[in-house]
């Protein structure tokens, strides 16, 4: 089983995100960079499948040079090799542009299965994985919490509003991860040592046969902070019951939400 995992390096979720001087880019100085949590589920699932069925796990990412660190972490978890598409032109890409680049790289790679995070927790776009599948003309299944592969077919349980749906498809396929799929392992000291010797192949757009990154179809014209909430009133009272009564009265008569 040849498995490719699509991975994005993102600011750690505990980071405060600022707005850059240009007003359209996020300020991410001094943040800690991590593997996007949903991509981490993808890495873990790929390694588990490999451990059971054999094969190899390749990590594919498009981004800045420093994304190699995130790939290295995935290699330390147990993936075999990495491919990083890095090119100044990538910076101006929207989600669809990134998907085109990843699909372009995948065209010269072999895969039975591609696993991607449902979204990256920076731009929250929910787009790239599924769009890559479309560009490769293979099926996709999103928000997967459980999968089973047998006889060149995959059966996936995916979450939907209020429940789960199980679907099946022949391989090759791309699926995206949902929380609950697995509990990602920590890289062991031995894994970290081994990862130092594993290859990360850095490629430019030209190397994957793309002349440029194309024109983005969506453009961020302004970033703003959400309306800042201020601390409201503290409901006081002699007893729990008195506080509860005052709160419910406020919610009913003042805020009118119950």
């Amino acid at each position: 089983m040849e498995i490719v995992v699509l991975l994005k390096q993102v600011p750690a979720t505990e980071s405060n995100i600022g707005i850059g001087d240009d007003g359209v880019s996020a300020k991410t100085d001094n943040v800690k960079w991590i593997i996007s949590p949903y991509d981490e589920f993808a890495v873990e699932e790929a390694i588990r499948i490999k451990e059971k069925q054999g094969g190899s796990v390749t990590i594919l990412s498009a981004g800045a040079e420093k994304a190699a660190d995130a790939i290295r972490t995935a290699l330390a978890m147990g993936a075999d090799k990495g491919v990083l598409i890095t090119d100044p032109a990538i910076q101006s890409c929207d989600g669809l542009g990134i998907a085109k680049i990843l699909a372009g790289a995948l065209k010269s790679m072999s895969y039975d299965l591609i696993i991607a995070g449902q979204r990256a927790v920076d731009d929250d776009n929910y787009l790239v994985g599924t769009a890559v599948a479309e560009f490769l003309n293979i099926p996709s299944i999103s928000f997967v919490v459980k999968q089973e592969i047998a006889d060149k077919k995959i059966r996936c349980q995916r979450t939907v509003e209020g429940g789960t749906v199980t679907v099946e498809s022949p391989l090759p396929i791309l699926f995206t991860t949902q929380r609950g799929l697995n509990e990602p392992r920590y890289a062991s000291m031995q894994g970290i040592m081994k990862a130092k010797k594993k290859p990360i192949d850095k490629k430019s757009l030209k190397d994957i046969g793309m002349a440029d990154a194309g024109k983005p179809l969506t453009k961020i014209i302004r970033l703003t902070f959400p309306p800042q909430r201020k601390a409201g009133q503290i409901i006081d009272g002699e007893s729990a019951q008195a506080k509860a009564a005052a709160l419910v009265k406020a919610l009913h008569e003042q805020a009118k939400v119950i």
Binding site: P11, T13, N16, I17, I19, A26, V121, D122, D123, D124, L217, T218, K219, I220, I221, R222, L223, T224, F225, P226
Partner: peptide, 18 residues
């Protein structure tokens, strides 16, 4: 122009689709 949250709602982006 459509507005969408990013970073889990830490910032909002005004996006112009073309």
């Amino acid at each position: 122009i459509a507005t969408r949250p990013m970073y889990g709602g830490k910032i909002y982006a005004d996006v112009m689709p073309e």
